[in-house]
Simulated assay, not measured.
Amino acid sequence: MTNWTRTGAVLLTLLLAAGCSRSMPTFGSSDPAPLTPAPRQRVAARQLPPPPPPAAPAMSENSAFENETDVTASETGQNASSDGQAGQETQVASVSSGPISRNSVLGAYKVTTTGGNCQIILSLTKWTGGYRAASRGCPGAVADVSAWDVAGNQVVLKDSGGSNVANLSSTGGSRYEGQTKSGQQISLYR
C-alpha cells in the first residue's frame, strides 16, 4: 500500500509540475487587438414628446355616418352647430341603439382626449369595478383608468376604486366616443 501511495504522490507532483510549465504555446502577435471601452457619458433625462395625432378615419366609414346624422338631425328638427356638437350627439344616439358585448370591446385602442393622445388596453381579467384596463401615456383623468365594463349600450371606464372616469357610446365599427366625469371629450378607436 505504501508503494501505491508513493506512486500516486509522484504522479500528482508530475501533473502539477506539468501544469505550471511554460511549455504551452504563447499567443504572440496573432492575438486580436483589445477592445476599446465604450464611452461613458451621463444619460440625459428629458420629457418625451407627445404622441402624434391620430389618423383620420377612412372616408367610407365617415360618409355613412354623416348621411345618417344628417337624416336623423333633419327628422328631429335639430340643426347642427358650426362645431358639429349637435350632429355628433345625434350620431352617437342613432348609431348606438343596441347593447354592446364585452367581447366586441376587448382589445387595444388609440385614445384621443383633451390634452393629448395615448393608448388603452382592455382585457377580460376581473378587476375592481369590472375588468382590467391599462392606460399608457394618457393625460388628465384618463390616466387614472384601470378598469372597464359594459353597461347597456355604453363602455364605462373606471379608476382603481371602481368610480366612473368616462362613459362612451359606440359610433360604429371599433370607435367609441364620450366624456370623462370632468367633461373632457374622449374617443377610443382602432
Rank of each mutant, 00 (worst) to 15 (best):
P57V: 10
S23W: 08
G19D: 08
P57W: 15
L48E: 12
R22A: 13
T113W: 13
R22C: 02
T76E: 05
T36R: 07
F65W: 13
P25V: 10
A9R: 02
I121K: 12
D144R: 15
A86Q: 15
E75D: 13
L124Q: 06
T171F: 03
K126Y: 08
V43L: 12
T171G: 00
A80C: 04
V111F: 01
I120M: 01
A18D: 07
G98I: 05
R175Q: 03
A134N: 06
L15P: 08
M1Q: 09
P50N: 02
A166G: 03
V43A: 04
S104I: 00
L11R: 14
P99R: 15
S182W: 02
P51Q: 05
P32A: 08
L11V: 10
C118F: 09
T112H: 07
S135D: 09
E61D: 08
A38C: 01
L168K: 02
L16N: 10
L35G: 14
Q47S: 07
N79T: 09
S169E: 11
M59P: 03
S135L: 01
A17H: 05
V10D: 12
W148K: 09
N62I: 06
T36Y: 02
N117M: 03
A86N: 07
E68N: 07
V71H: 11
D31R: 15
M1L: 11
S97N: 10
G137F: 13
K181R: 15
V10K: 00
L14V: 15
G116Q: 05
Q91W: 01
L188N: 02
N103Q: 14
A133Q: 00
T7A: 15
P37K: 01
G130A: 14
L188A: 00
N153F: 09
S123D: 10
P57I: 12
R190T: 03
S29A: 10
G115H: 09
C138L: 11
Q41R: 13
A151R: 00
A108W: 04
S96M: 02
R136I: 03
R175N: 13
Q91S: 12
S160Y: 11
P99Q: 14
G84E: 04
G98M: 11
M24V: 07
V156P: 09
S60R: 10
G140T: 01
N67G: 11
V142M: 13
L122R: 00
E75P: 09
